[in-house]
């Protein structure tokens, strides 16, 4: 082997010996295999979730499971509508509160604040993302819920004429608190991506607006916002994906009531929270377990769709450049 390798390398010295090329080929194969493994993993992931969730779908139907308004462990009846609705309400609250603040913070940091404050502000906004979910939950339970209750009651009393928001008697843990915690949690990611998008606005466009005699805000509205609209939409959708899938903090402050709450300040449940709470007891009840895995699958598909859409928006902005 060694002799023949030497012979070959003598006859064609430019091509190198197969022996010396072996590590190269091995590395290439190993790295490619890793990449293949990732794709396989995700496919496997989906299939296993589906197989384990099938008993629930078989008993209640895919549509029935997702849209029946009845989740009762004691009767072994599982219709996930209250969870889906809770997930959507809390995510909506999170977006309504979190996205405008995140965009405003991104604009302030990239365009308005003094240059020296930019670094510290960016770090602090990013640190919001470093606080663990369970710590937000802990804070929510023992600080946010009791401190905000009077304010929530005041708001719902004042707005008594608005359906769903007004005229409620505020429950301690509720949809609004869950949404508020989620807003805080999605803020850093939405803000960070918005900042990135805004950083790609060419200086040319900003200067063109300023050279027309635009004020700073007019420059933002003329040059920056239209250019980054698609990217900001994408950032908001990534935030939505986060809000839908976030588990522990919401579990602690949502009230864990498997029914559709009658108003914004009522207790509820979300898909992720029900899994975290009930899975421990469900391990030995096959249909309950299947229902929870099915809830996980619904969650998975939902976040997948939202994230895929977000990518489309974020990538679209490159078409403008």
């Amino acid at each position: 082997m060694a002799a023949s390798a030497a012979a070959i390398s003598q006859s064609g010295s430019l091509r190198g010996s197969p022996l010396s090329r072996l590590p190269d080929r091995a590395l290439r194969i190993v790295l490619t295999a890793l990449a293949v493994a990732i794709l396989t993993l995700i496919a496997f992931f989906f299939i296993r979730l589906y197989v384990e969730a099938r008993p629930a779908f078989a008993r209640f139907g895919v549509f029935g499971f997702t849209f029946n308004n009845d989740w009762d462990v004691s009767r072994n009846v599982f219709g996930a509508l209250p969870l889906v609705v809770g997930t959507l309400i809390t995510a909506a609250v999170a977006l309504i509160i979190g996205v405008p603040v995140a965009i405003a913070a991104a604009l302030f940091v990239t365009e308005l604040c003094p240059r020296r404050a930019r670094g510290p502000l960016t770090i602090m906004l990013d640190l919001l993302a470093a606080v663990p979910s369970v710590v937000y939950g802990l804070w929510g339970v023992f600080v946010l819920i009791p401190k905000l209750k009077p304010a929530e009651q005041w708001v719902t009393d004042k707005l008594h004429f608005i359906p769903f928001i007004g005229g409620a008697s505020v429950a301690g843990p509720n949809y609004f608190i869950g949404g508020l915690i989620l807003a805080i949690m999605i803020l850093p990611i939405v803000s960070a991506i918005t900042r990135e998008v805004m950083a790609t606005v060419p200086a040319d466009h900003k200067e063109a607006a300023l050279a027309l005699g635009a004020t700073r805000w007019e420059m933002i509205r003329t040059a920056i916002l239209p250019y980054s609209r698609a990217g900001i939409t994408g950032a908001a959708m990534l935030g939505l994906g986060r809000a839908i899938g976030e588990t522990i903090a919401v579990t602690l402050v949502i009230g864990n009531a498997p029914r559709i709450g009658s108003h914004l300040f009522d207790q509820g449940y979300t898909l992720a929270a029900v899994i975290a709470n009930e899975f421990g007891e469900a391990a030995n009840n096959p249909i309950h377990r299947a229902a929870l895995i099915a809830a996980g699958l619904v969650l998975f598909v939902l976040t997948l769709l939202v994230n895929a859409a977000a990518r489309v928006f974020i990538n679209r902005r490159t078409a403008l450049a």
């Binding site: 990732i38 794709l39 995700i42 992931f45 296993r48 979730l49 384990e52 990534l238 994906g241 986060r242 839908i244 899938g245 976030e246 588990t247 992720a272 899994i275 975290a276 899975f279 929870l292 895995i293 996980g296 969650l299 998975f300 976040t303 997948l304 939202v306 994230n307 895929a308 977000a310 990518r311």
Partner: peptide, 20 residues
């Protein structure tokens, strides 16, 4: 693309998967 997709998968779903 799928690595990006994985970033968006809720952590509890990973827990479910490993349990299964």
């Amino acid at each position: 693309y799928f690595v990006d997709v994985m970033t968006g998968v809720p952590s509890i779903v990973f827990g479910l998967f490993v349990f299964i």
